[in-house]
Amino acid sequence: MGGFEEQVKARAKEMKSLFKKGVKIVGDSCKKGWNKIKHLKR
């Protein structure tokens, strides 16, 4: 049972770092998208 808990903890750490990276990527792409839309309106 202890080994399984360790795996879960390790997986949670991986997910956290991946999630942070994902949020940053999504945020950047959203900014780019909004910039395109703003420029199209002008």
Rank of each mutant, 00 (worst) to 15 (best):
A12W: 05
V8C: 02
C30I: 14
G3T: 01
G2A: 07
K21E: 03
F4K: 13
K31F: 08
G27Q: 04
K32C: 05
K36C: 03
K9R: 03
V23C: 15
K13W: 07
Q7E: 10
C30L: 15
F19Y: 13
L18C: 10
K32G: 05
R11G: 14
L40M: 11
K31Y: 00
C30T: 15
G33T: 06
L40P: 04
R42K: 10
G2P: 06
R11Y: 03
Q7A: 10
M15K: 03
G33C: 04
F4N: 12
A10P: 04
S17K: 00
K32E: 03
A12L: 04
H39R: 15
K21I: 03
D28T: 02
G33E: 07
K21Y: 07
G3C: 05
S29L: 14
D28P: 14
R42S: 12
K13Y: 03
K9V: 08
G22D: 15
G22H: 10
K24M: 04
K16T: 09
M1E: 15
K13I: 04
V23Y: 03
K32Y: 08
K41H: 01
K16W: 11
K16H: 03
F19C: 14
I37R: 05
K16F: 11
K9T: 05
K36S: 01
G27K: 05
V26N: 08
E6P: 12
D28H: 01
M15Q: 06
K41D: 11
M15C: 09
I37G: 00
F4P: 08
R11H: 12
L40S: 15
S29A: 00
V8E: 09
K36N: 01
G2K: 00
